[in-house]
């Protein structure tokens, strides 16, 4: 069954015993250890992990400040806007900005390499 399909179906059932899985696992281990994949992986994690830490911290700071520092949040900034509104609209702005930065990072840093590695890996698996 697995041989007939273009790509082995890993969800079909519980995995077959070692004999059938061995060469596939070898391919994936080899690709994982290769420089091309390591570059993609560090490009991805290098952007995503710090970015997630930043936006989660920034969001939680906003929520906690609202709950426990209401006087600070009430301070007027300009016209009817106070600190709370400025920070809230800042959340919108930072979300749009991070989305754009992430898209740019993915497009320029890893899309092409990932696609090349995909065909490469699938050729080896065949």
């Amino acid at each position: 069954m697995a041989q007939q399909q273009k790509v082995f179906d890993p969800w079909a059932a519980d995995r077959p015993p070692a004999a059938a899985a061995e060469p596939r696992a070898g391919v994936y281990r080899e690709v994982q250890a290769g420089a091309a994949f390591q570059a993609i992986r560090s490009g991805y994690r290098g952007f995503v992990l710090p970015a997630t830490a930043v936006f989660l911290a920034w969001y939680l700071l906003f929520v906690v400040a609202q709950a426990f520092a209401p006087n600070l949040m009430r301070r007027q900034v300009a016209g009817p806007l106070n600190v709370a509104w400025v920070l809230g609209l800042g959340q919108f702005a930072s979300t749009f900005l991070l989305t754009w930065l992430y898209a740019r990072n993915a497009r320029t840093k890893r899309d092409r390499a990932a696609l090349d590695l995909r065909w490469d890996t699938q050729d080896q698996l065949r």
Binding site: V7, A25, Y28, V31, I40, A114, R118
Partner: peptide, 17 residues
């Protein structure tokens, strides 16, 4: 199982398979 994690990681970032 390191083999399976290798498969998941390679698939997840490249789309292989």
């Amino acid at each position: 199982d390191p083999d399976r994690y290798a498969e998941l990681e390679v698939r997840s970032l490249t789309g292989a398979g």
